[in-house]
Simulated scan of single mutants.
Amino acid sequence: MSTQSIYTDRLILVPFILEVTNTLLAGDTSILLKLGLQLTPFWPDQEAIDTFPKIIKNLELVQEPTGFESYMVVHRESMTVIGDAGFKGLPNADGEVDIGYAIIAQAQNRGYGLEAAKGLTNWAFQQPGVKAITARCLLENAPSARVLIKLGMQQVTTTEEFIRWKMFNPNLQPSISN
């Protein structure tokens, strides 16, 4: 299953592929120009660079991107990358996928994180076998928690470090047992 970009009102979520991610990790952003994107001094930021090895590891597990990996969050008007978002792999045995997102500091507090997360959840809930989406955020990360609440997620558990969140696929009817 090859994956396509996901379009929202203001964003395009462009799937990472191994070649692009490896090149970015090596410090060469010129590969973005080949994708029709504009360079910005703000991305990749350190958070994105720290995430690249995890993205590469997930991409190496599949023949080609499935959609359940990571995406570059591209601002449609400027065609610059303003963050990354995506899933941490294929659905697990319970039909759950874990979502994550990060928007560069220069583009925060404008609703881009929520818009990217909505685009991803809408896509995921249309895929066979996806029953729920999970997330976790640091206890002190109030902006991320606000995004997850606006997305419709419910807190599941809290540890000293993280809050775990979950939302069920609204397209699935709950099974009624007699």
Rank of each mutant, 00 (worst) to 15 (best):
Q126D: 13
P65T: 10
I49A: 12
A102V: 07
F52A: 02
H75N: 14
E160F: 03
N122H: 11
Q173D: 13
L39D: 08
D45G: 02
I55C: 12
V73M: 02
G129T: 05
P174W: 02
L37G: 02
L32E: 11
N141W: 10
P15N: 08
A142P: 02
S70Q: 08
M153G: 10
D50Y: 03
V81F: 07
D28N: 03
N169I: 06
Y71R: 12
T23C: 07
V73C: 03
H75C: 04
T21N: 07
D50Q: 11
R136L: 09
F42L: 12
L25E: 00
V20A: 07
L138K: 13
T8S: 05
P174Y: 01
L151T: 05
A48W: 10
I31P: 06
A26R: 12
F162K: 07
Q63P: 15
M1G: 07
Q108L: 02
I99E: 03
R76Q: 14
D94G: 12
V74E: 08
L59T: 10
F52P: 08
N109F: 11
Q38Y: 10
E64K: 13
L138Q: 08
Q155V: 15
L139V: 00
G83C: 03
T159D: 07
E19A: 03
P44R: 11
A116Q: 04
Y71M: 06
I104Y: 06
L33C: 10
R164D: 14
Q126C: 14
V147L: 10
S2P: 13
Q38D: 07
S177W: 05
A107N: 10
F162L: 04
F168R: 13
A102P: 03
S70C: 07
A142M: 10
